[in-house]
């Protein structure tokens, strides 16, 4: 696919307006790569002036910091900020709430000041501005969709409304889980849990959350975080419901509902 790379754009004499921060999950994880591709499809279709860092992007340091490895976090932050500042980047969009939180809240006091938005907010803006035109009879019209709040988007950054507005724009019926918004249950991946086995217990967190989603009666579980997506996809598979229920990122919902 056609994805502009920041360094190449600079060499061509272009200064893109927005950096799309792909994140490690979005770059390497097979499932999350399709979210990345869906979002890039939308960016290309709308004609946004953007680029990615490509091979120069590094982990923001989020999992290292939450695990307690502040040295490693500071190392990553230092290198990323040096690069972002050298490219004079002003605005960043990302589909990962963990990258979003770190870039938006934790980099400024280390010298990295950017306008950072999450892709849910950007998608909502593009819909509101009429730049994303959805199909009259879209794939999700009338379907029951539930939205799983990512902790790093919701409780951590108070973004509850934007992803819901995106779902409602699909003419779908948004059904809430019993625990939602500020009471939403974690998927189990945060705090670097994604990268280790769960501690000893009597159940798994992603199964508890999958049960909430199944109880909602929705046929699509929408998420706005690649890690939540992985955890819930696993949960649905363990419940052997993958034929009936799809776990999709809001970027994928939109990409499947626009004329290409």
């Amino acid at each position: 696919m056609n994805v502009p790379i920041w360094s190449e754009e600079i060499n061509k004499g272009n200064q893109p307006e927005i950096l799309f921060w792909v994140g490690c999950a979005g770059s390497f994880d097979a499932r999350a790569q399709s979210i990345t591709k869906a979002f890039v499809t939308i960016l290309n279709k709308v004609g946004i002036s953007y680029a990615i860092l490509g091979k120069e992007e590094m982990c923001t340091g989020d999992p290292a910091r939450r695990a307690g490895n502040e040295f490693q976090f500071q190392m990553m932050a230092y290198q990323n900020i040096q690069l972002l500042n050298s490219y004079q980047i002003k605005k960043i969009v990302t589909a990962c709430p963990h990258c979003f939180n770190t870039l938006k809240n934790e980099y400024p006091e280390l010298g990295g000041n950017y306008e950072v938005i999450h892709h849910s907010t950007m998608l909502q803006q593009l819909i509101d501005q009429g730049k994303i035109v959805l199909n009259e009879n879209g794939t999700f019209k009338g379907k029951k969709i539930t939205f799983h709040d990512s902790c790093y988007l919701g409780r951590s950054n108070n973004i509850y409304q934007a992803p819901r507005a995106v779902i409602e724009a699909l003419d779908a019926s948004l059904v809430e889980m019993k625990r939602c918004k500020s009471n939403g249950l974690c998927c189990g991946a945060g705090g670097a849990q994604m990268f280790k086995e769960e501690e000893k217990g009597n159940s798994r967190i992603n199964l508890a959350r999958t049960k909430d989603a199944l109880d909602s009666g929705a046929s699509v579980i929408a998420s706005a975080c690649p890690f939540c997506n992985t955890m819930l996809t696993d949960g649905i598979k363990l419940n052997e419901k993958q034929e009936d229920i799809k776990v999709l990122d809001i970027a994928e919902l939109i990409a499947q509902s626009i004329e290409l």
């Binding site: 696919m1 994805v3 790379i5 792909v22 490690c24 770059s27 390497f28 994880d29 790569q33 990345t36 591709k37 990615i52 490509g54 091979k55 992007e57 590094m58 982990c59 340091g61 999992p63 290292a64 695990a67 490895n69 490693q72 190392m75 990553m76 670097a192 994604m194 990268f195 280790k196 086995e197």
Partner: peptide, 29 residues
């Protein structure tokens, strides 16, 4: 597993064991 994750971040700049060159593999599909 966290020790491996720290190692990956240090050497490959990502928590998983992928090289930085693979970061843009998805764009080729």
């Amino acid at each position: 597993e966290w020790t491996s994750m720290f190692g990956n971040i240090e050497n490959n700049f990502a928590p998983w064991k992928f090289s930085p060159d693979q970061r843009i593999d998805w764009t080729k599909e």
